[in-house]
Design a protein around this nucleic acid. Sequence first.
DNA 1: GATGAATGAGGATTCATTCAT
DNA 2: TATGAATGAATCCTCATTCAT
Lengths: 216, 216, 216, 216
Amino acid sequence: MPKATFFNLPEAKRQHIIELALAEFAENDFDQASISRIVARAGIAKGSFYQYFENKEDLHAYLLALGAEAKAQFLKDNPPDPQMGTFAYIRWLSQAGIVFELERPQLSQIAYRAVRSGTLPKEMQALAKAGSTSFFRQLVEQGQAHGDIDATLDPDLAAFFFNVIFNELGSYLIHRLQQGDGGANGRSLFETPEAAHLFNQALHILASGLGAKEPT
Amino acid sequence: MPKATFFNLPEAKRQHIIELALAEFAENDFDQASISRIVARAGIAKGSFYQYFENKEDLHAYLLALGAEAKAQFLKDNPPDPQMGTFAYIRWLSQAGIVFELERPQLSQIAYRAVRSGTLPKEMQALAKAGSTSFFRQLVEQGQAHGDIDATLDPDLAAFFFNVIFNELGSYLIHRLQQGDGGANGRSLFETPEAAHLFNQALHILASGLGAKEPT
Amino acid sequence: MPKATFFNLPEAKRQHIIELALAEFAENDFDQASISRIVARAGIAKGSFYQYFENKEDLHAYLLALGAEAKAQFLKDNPPDPQMGTFAYIRWLSQAGIVFELERPQLSQIAYRAVRSGTLPKEMQALAKAGSTSFFRQLVEQGQAHGDIDATLDPDLAAFFFNVIFNELGSYLIHRLQQGDGGANGRSLFETPEAAHLFNQALHILASGLGAKEPT
Amino acid sequence: MPKATFFNLPEAKRQHIIELALAEFAENDFDQASISRIVARAGIAKGSFYQYFENKEDLHAYLLALGAEAKAQFLKDNPPDPQMGTFAYIRWLSQAGIVFELERPQLSQIAYRAVRSGTLPKEMQALAKAGSTSFFRQLVEQGQAHGDIDATLDPDLAAFFFNVIFNELGSYLIHRLQQGDGGANGRSLFETPEAAHLFNQALHILASGLGAKEPT
DNA sequence: GATGAATGAGGATTCATTCAT
DNA sequence: TATGAATGAATCCTCATTCAT
């Protein structure tokens, strides 16, 4: 955790540092990210950095935490219909994830790097993995209990499918939709008929593959 | 390419160096991998390394080439039934990939890192990426032509599903099956009823999600 | 340019580093000069050097700049008589060059090496070369216009004579006068009758060879 | 001196090695010249090199000796008119030097580098310098005895003028004449009216500056 | 006599972290 | 609290020379 010193900083200065740190860690893996670059750009002294943070890892962990918090807040601000079934919920979650990625690309990118790095210091790696895994695991179990998801499926395997598609679908769609698109960003990119069509198909594939089979 | 000097080395010494290099690059991304560490462990002089290889990149490329060659050989040794349909083909490919990963985990890991790094020298990156994307794209189009895959699906999106599942399923299954398993490795780990069951389910999910819908 | 860090150093330390660097680059060509040697002698950490300078080239360029500045200052402090003719001007310039070389032999040596190396970074080389060449070229043209220099001479060839004699005469005289002289240095060495005599003869040779021929 | 082994080599092989070594040392200063490159290009083993030569310096000294020998031979093959005066002799010597430089540029270049390096191992430097100095010194003394050269001049200073002009004039003329000349080489470049004119002027300058003054 | 693998000190440069002011 | 100079181990890479075969 950042030291108290950091939180005593004037809001503007703190934000400035965070923004530059986000940019650095969004563009570089942990090892490539450079404290020197951050402080140089932020215009603060090297030593000051170590008055604010324990070390490089401390800053990184803090940014990841910021990302988690921002996403949680985002989901809370875009709440699901409490009545929706499992696949509608997944649709909501996935869509929210994509919009979040479009609106806060740096936070998403840092989290993405962290999960895929293997260089993640210690607990974070396990934590992140366990987090998403157990979340989807729960989701699957509820879906099976409600009859939304094929109850004969191994729940962990089903959770794996949700997890991996959930993780990659956003990047795939964004990358694809940005092809030949000057540089629309944010929500707008995703509010096109083509986007809706692709998204529907993806969800349909998941539903067909994992959904409960109707008795014939 | 390694220099002639390297290939003139006694078999044992050459193997020793390769093994240590594989370990280093399997555990570290290109930038983090350390030539110093390799030579220290191998008990050779720093200078000797540069008698064998042009530079760090040369060694890395060689290891990737070794991996590609080993995998190609492996697939040739475990050929598919020429008559099989799309999903059977995917099953074969996926299974072969998993067994290869179990038997040569370092080679797989190095290739995996390389693809996900963006630091790949020049052509290799494009080659690898284009390779897998266009490969699955082709597979999907053939499947749609043969009636194996739902022809109404966007072929690129379907290829994405194959691609991502193909990339991640192996790691997932291996990781899961190794839980609570002292350290069985290679084929044996994968020749259990549980493994077969999970694998069948995974393929079934794909087939249900992406397969052609029977007319009712 | 050296970093701000360097200029913030205590005067004494900065001077110490500069002196050692001057010695190193005066005794070695750029490639042979060793940063390791400099820092070892200066008793500073390798890393500190790179807090002061961008890199080896940065230090080298700085020393060259110091030399250029020192020489310019020196010439300003020993101004020519504004009325003097071409040969008197050459005499003044040459004498000043020699005294400067005696007083700041390292600065002269570094500049000399730089000009003769061909390894000069980029602009400096062209600058130095063009500088001296075009400078003497101008001088010759003015001399010819004023009737000081034989107007039938190829001006470029005449400039070549000035240039080469100017470049080498100093070293020659210094080397010669220091023979059998314990170690007088600076101006004193040059303020002897012998020195004056040799210098007069050299200038006379030039004037006879290049000067305008009196109509008989 | 090269070892006996070297002189026992088949003529062709020996020549081949010499040519590549000449190329290397003509293009690089002593320290930059690379034994590795030479043996690689010559297709001989590293170890063999050290069977032929004591070390790098041995080879370098040998090449310098070859150059000296070749030049001596060249001068013997283009003998001066035994009756000519000092300036005619200088003219002949200078012209021969230029033609030699045009015909054996590598040998000239190596000698030139050696003289101007200061890195020259030990004796060679002194030797080379002393050699040319004392040669011109002798020439001047003879010229003064014969009344060709102003007897009031300091003979060492006069020798310096001959020496430096002699050393640099060739390069200057060659460089100048090759401007805007596709790539004529050898003697032809020097057999033009412009070349003759420049050469005449240069000699005339020397003669006017150093020659005996006619009593008026 | 020929080979070529082995050596190892040396080169420049980077960077997270510490510490005295 | 803020500063920023100091550190030094670590990075990749080069090259003349030696020595066992």
